[in-house]
Amino acid sequence: MSSIASYTKTHDQRIQDDVMQQITWQPEIHSKDISVKVQDANVMLTGFVHGYLEKLAAERAAKTVFGVVSVANDIEVKPPSMRTDPEIARDVVEALRIHASVPDEKIKVAVSGGFVTLTGAVDWHYELENAETAAHSINGVRGIVNLLQIKQRATSEQVRQKIEDALKRMVDLDARSMSVYTSDGTVSLYGNVHSWSEREKAERAAWQAPGVQQVSNHLTIHP
C-alpha cells in the first residue's frame, strides 16, 4: 500500500514540476503569482494575472504536459488599472466590428464588473470562437460568458457521419476507440485517447460539423 501511495505522490510531483516549468516557459505569461496543485493527475491553477489572455495561456500550457487528465483554472484576473464597464463594452464592440470572421451585427455585448456577456446567433462555431477571442484581447476584461447560439444546419445523422469521417481522417487519432452520438445539435463523444491534446483535437473536429450547438466530451485519457 505504501509503495502505491509513494508512486502516486511522485507522479503528481512530476506533473506539478512540469506544469510550473511549462507556464514559466510561455513568453505571454508574466505573472509570478500562479500556483499549481496536482492530485491524481488533476491540475488546479490558482493565483493572479493581469489579463484574461494570460489566464488562458496558463491553462493551455498546463494541458500540454504529459500525464495531465484535467485542468481546473481558478486563476483570478486583476487588471493593473481598472476600466469602467462602458469603456470595456465600447472596445469589445469595436473589436467584433473589425474582425473579418465575426458577424458583429448578430452579436450583442453586455459588461458587468469587467465580465463580458455575448449573446445572439451565428452560423458557425468558428464565428463563436472568434467573437470570444476578440473580446479576450480587450484590456480590463476579467472573464467571458459566451451565450452565442449556433443555427441548426443539418440533421443529427448528417452531423454524426461528418464527425466520424473527420475523426477517421486524423492521422494521430484512433477513430475506432471513439463513439459519436448526436441529438438536436448536441454531440457526445465517448471512448479513450492517449493525451489531453488528442482529446481536444477530437472535440475540435466535432465542433467543425455544421449546426453543432454543444459538445459533451466524455473521452477518457489513458497515457
Rank of each mutant, 00 (worst) to 15 (best):
G47F: 01
I29Y: 01
H125L: 07
T119Y: 09
E28M: 09
D74S: 04
D91W: 02
V145Y: 09
Q26E: 14
L53P: 08
D33F: 07
G113L: 06
Y181D: 14
D85S: 01
D74M: 02
I15R: 09
I98L: 06
D33Q: 13
D104F: 10
S188M: 13
E164W: 09
D172P: 06
V38P: 06
E157F: 05
V187C: 09
M20I: 14
E28D: 13
E132P: 05
A58L: 03
N139E: 15
S197G: 12
K168A: 08
D18S: 14
Q214F: 11
E105Q: 07
D12A: 08
R204C: 08
M82N: 04
Q208G: 15
A61W: 00
T84Y: 01
E59I: 06
Q208T: 13
P80E: 14
M82K: 10
D33A: 10
A110H: 11
G51A: 13
K201S: 09
S216N: 15
S3A: 14
A57V: 01
W207F: 06
I107P: 00
V187H: 06
R83E: 03
L219K: 12
V102E: 01
D12H: 06
E28W: 12
Q13H: 13
V71S: 04
H30T: 13
D174W: 04
E157P: 04
K168G: 03
D18T: 14
